[in-house]
């Protein structure tokens, strides 16, 4: 068999695998529709606001309910003590307009 035919066959095989993964993704997502509806029901009944992804500290457990001024509590922009800081960003300070001028 020619080398180009082998290359095309292998590429076609990889594309077929990608198509199969895409079909897998669609089937999985449609199967999960009821799960999300049930989860939304639990969220709305218990009035939850956050995911239980990180339970290492209050501001990591409920990032949406944490203090306005810091994601990492001690002082704004401080370095996180937990590895969660690699995922949860410090707050944005775009709205802060304080300018310190050094004369």
């Amino acid at each position: 068999m020619r080398r180009s035919s082998i290359f095309f066959l292998l590429t076609a095989l990889k594309i077929l695998i990608i198509i199969a993964l895409f079909v897998h993704s669609r089937i999985e997502l449609s199967n999960r529709m009821t799960l999300w509806k049930d989860l939304e029901g639990i969220v709305s009944t218990l009035k939850l606001t956050d995911m239980a992804l990180f339970t290492d500290a209050r501001y990591a457990r409920h990032p949406t309910q944490a203090d306005l001024f810091s994601a990492f509590q001690d002082y704004p922009g401080s370095i996180e003590h937990f590895p969660t800081g690699t995922i949860v960003p410090p707050p944005e300070f775009d709205s802060v307009e304080t300018v310190i001028k050094i004369k």
């Binding site: 290492d56 990591a60 590895p83």
Partner: peptide, 20 residues
């Protein structure tokens, strides 16, 4: 997983939905 899990005692076990 080590970066995602943090230092907590309770880790949720979940299977991610394959959104592309």
């Amino acid at each position: 997983a080590p970066a995602l899990k943090g230092w907590s005692v309770i880790y949720p076990e979940y299977r991610l939905a394959p959104f592309i």
